[in-house]
Amino acid sequence: MLDDTDRRILRYYQSDPDMSASILAEQAGVTATTLSRRLERMRDIGVLKGVRSVINWPALGYEVEVSLRVTLDKTQPRAFDEFIAAARQVAEVIEIQTFLGQVDVRLSVIARDMAHYQQLYRDQLLVLPHINDIEALMQVARVKGQESLPL
């Protein structure tokens, strides 16, 4: 599917997504036309899903990040769908993951401070449907947050 040239392009691209196409082509050792063609092919086959911004939440005043591990009442046939639909409506929920095992869903929640988190928790999170159990893990530090892979 991907050859060494594709991997080289991806390696440079993920290290600096803002790099101009001409510099990326030069670093990857291909022409601008080849680069363009290969990036387009990687988009078409789903290797590249898009470009996104990474937001520094503390710079915007969100100092608290909490991971909520939720176990749902699985006796309800639509528990997952209804819980996820409701969780999507909470603006401070920035990530939703589902799992197989003891924990069904993990929510990443941001808040300005502990008072804001407490209000979110009571007013918007605890009232989400079909919660059987919920565990909050307060993030102390992000030790590794890099999303790039060794290519």
Rank of each mutant, 00 (worst) to 15 (best):
M1V: 13
I9Y: 08
L10R: 10
R11W: 10
Y13H: 13
S15K: 14
D16S: 12
M19D: 02
L24E: 07
L24W: 09
A25F: 10
A25I: 07
T31C: 00
T31H: 03
A32I: 12
T33G: 12
T34H: 04
L35I: 10
R37L: 07
R37C: 00
L39E: 10
L39I: 15
L39T: 10
E40L: 11
E40Q: 11
R41S: 11
R41M: 06
M42E: 08
M42C: 04
M42R: 03
R43Q: 14
L48A: 04
G50L: 04
R52E: 12
A59T: 10
A59H: 10
G61C: 06
Y62K: 07
V64E: 08
S67G: 02
L68Q: 09
V70M: 06
D73L: 06
D73F: 09
K74P: 00
K74Q: 13
T75P: 01
Q76V: 15
P77W: 14
P77N: 03
A79G: 00
D81R: 14
F83C: 03
F83H: 12
F83A: 05
I84W: 02
A87D: 05
Q89L: 09
Q89V: 00
Q89K: 13
A91V: 07
I94R: 13
I96L: 05
Q97F: 07
T98H: 04
T98L: 02
T98M: 02
F99Y: 15
L100I: 13
G101W: 01
Q102K: 14
Q102Y: 09
D104C: 06
V105Y: 01
R106N: 12
I110R: 11
A111L: 07
R112I: 09
D113W: 10
M114K: 11
Y117D: 00
Y117A: 03
Q118L: 11
Q119R: 13
L120E: 10
D123G: 01
Q124H: 13
L126Q: 15
L126G: 07
L126E: 13
L128E: 04
L128W: 07
L128D: 03
H130D: 04
D133E: 14
I134C: 05
E135V: 12
A136P: 01
M138E: 06
Q139P: 00
A141C: 01
V143M: 10
K144N: 11
